[in-house]
């Protein structure tokens, strides 16, 4: 086996996992506190990528663009909460799903109107565009290391937020219990809007970070949202720790499966059979893993406390 490739792919898996975590953490945060299923979360990720792409062209610097885009996407999230999500809180999950499904169409088409149907490549500053040699013979793109760094930093920040702040206390308590929250003297309406905006910023950040690699495209939201769902189902909906563990696991399995499954299959089947079956199985791998985990733990790996 090629260990250099294994190492690089593991790194890629961790990077995908951390991006998934950024998206999934917002999703699980909104669900955990607001009891709201936001299908349009992937579209926010996509909108974040486009805003950042435009700002990169205007400012000429990707990092500055990210810093300006973050509050903007937070504001987008805030507006979505005020205009759409708020009216749906009292409804059932089916209504959440259908309402935000409509929102996806609106957001996707708005992006189509503003930016056109084609994707948007996002240039990186020179010092980020290169590669670094980590050790003898192992060369990785600098930007991927940055993504990993940012992902870990955000994870640490969320860990602090969940475990050591008042907001975190509410999250851990599974604060969909609205009476309890008001008993603590908190303005629920503001709290909910802030949580929603934070979730949007996390998703938007993930979209911004991935866009220099894959370019910003309208379909990117629909592609990530299902995987993010798999992550939070496996992790346990509402659990931040579960989202982190599951995101890394899913990221690794997906990446490694795609590159090594055929080698693995060749150990016990003919090369030809391995060549044909490996892509099919690796395409389904994370869903199979999800099915196996749910068969034994219907509430995911880290089910939130009973509410």
């Amino acid at each position: 086996m090629d260990y250099t490739l294994l190492f690089i792919q593991t790194l890629n898996g961790v990077q995908l996992g951390l991006l998934l975590f950024l998206v999934a953490s917002g999703l699980t945060l909104v669900f955990g506190i607001l009891d709201f299923v936001n299908l349009a979360h992937g579209s926010i990720y996509m909108v974040g990528a486009f805003i950042c792409a435009s700002l990169t062209f205007i400012t000429g610097n990707f990092l500055i663009a990210v810093l300006i885009s973050l509050p903007i996407i937070g504001l987008v999230g805030y507006l979505i909460e005020r205009l759409v999500a708020r009216t749906l809180y009292s409804r059932n999950h089916l209504d959440h799903v259908l309402g935000t499904f409509g929102l996806i169409l609106v957001l996707d088409t708005s992006v189509h109107l503003i930016w056109g149907p084609a994707g948007f490549a996002v240039p990186l500053p020179e010092w980020l565009d290169g590669r670094v040699e980590l050790f003898e013979g192992v060369v990785v793109p600098t930007f991927r290391l940055l993504i990993i760094g940012v992902g870990l930093a955000v994870a640490a920040g969320l860990y602090w937020l969940v475990n050591f702040t008042k907001l975190g206390m509410l999250i851990r308590a599974g604060a969909s219990n609205r009476t309890m929250v008001s008993a603590l003297g908190i303005d629920i309406s503001t709290l909910f809007a802030l949580v929603f905006a934070l979730g949007a910023m996390l998703a938007g950040l993930a979209g911004m970070l991935i866009s220099p690699i894959t370019e910003a495209s309208i379909s990117m939201g629909g592609e990530i949202i299902i995987t993010a769902f798999v992550v939070i189902i496996v992790g346990g909906i509402g659990s931040m720790k579960g989202a982190f563990v599951a995101a890394i696991v899913i990221g690794l399995i997906d990446t490694l499966g795609r590159s090594f499954l055929d080698d693995l299959f060749k150990l016990f089947m003919s090369p030809q059979a391995a060549e044909t079956s490996a892509p099919a199985v690796s395409a389904m791998l994370i869903y199979i893993i999800m099915a196996v985990i749910l068969a034994f733990r219907p509430q995911g790996l880290f089910p939130p406390r009973v509410r």
């Binding site: 999950h93 299902i226 909906i237 389904m284 219907p298």
Partner: peptide, 27 residues
């Protein structure tokens, strides 16, 4: 075996599994 929002998401994920399965079948 799951309920509520888990059911919504897991049926969605299984649907997507078939979707990716057919995408992966070059033949």
């Amino acid at each position: 075996r799951t309920k509520g929002v888990y059911f919504i998401m897991i049926t969605m994920a299984f649907g997507q599994m078939i979707y990716y399965l057919f995408i992966s079948m070059e033949e």
